Amino acid sequence: MVGSKKKLEAEISSAFIKFQRELLGRGPQEAKTYIVEDMVITRFKGVLTTEEKHLVNHDTGRRLVKKMRQVLREMYSSDFEKIVEDLTNCKVLSSHSDISTKMGERIEVFIVDKNLEKSVDD
């Protein structure tokens, strides 16, 4: 058993916030992680910087922000996956990410090699 599901979800959220603060100088205002079967899903709220909030009001700026965030995610995808692997003791098989410039939110989905939800206590 890995331990409590809620505790593990909170640990993953905290680790992601810490990593992003170290990487970008600021992190999301809020992060919430959900473990669902073989998926670890994290929803980040308040991810846009002040500059990005201005840029997303213009079509070119919105595309630029999405592209920049996509490039950053690709550059650091192994770091994000390592956080999940270290905390869950599972192998990450794949990961996916998207940002909503409209809501200022980002979602991360990690597919792991076993049903993690069955390995944790409610």
Rank of each mutant, 00 (worst) to 15 (best):
M1C: 11
V2I: 13
V2L: 11
G3A: 09
G3K: 11
S4A: 13
K7H: 09
K7G: 08
A10E: 15
E11A: 15
A15F: 04
A15C: 09
I17S: 00
K18N: 14
F19C: 07
R21H: 10
E22R: 11
E22D: 14
L24R: 12
G27K: 02
T33R: 08
E37F: 14
V40A: 10
T42D: 00
R43G: 03
K45F: 06
G46K: 01
V47E: 00
T50V: 12
H54C: 11
L55R: 09
H58I: 13
H58F: 14
G61D: 07
R62H: 05
V65P: 05
L72T: 06
L72M: 10
R73G: 01
S78E: 14
S78W: 11
D79E: 14
D79R: 13
E81L: 05
K82D: 05
L87H: 05
N89R: 15
C90Y: 02
V92G: 04
H96Q: 12
S97V: 07
S97K: 08
I99W: 01
S100E: 08
G104N: 02
E105Y: 03
E105N: 02
R106N: 04
I107P: 01
V109I: 11
V112L: 09
K114A: 00
K118Y: 08
D122I: 10
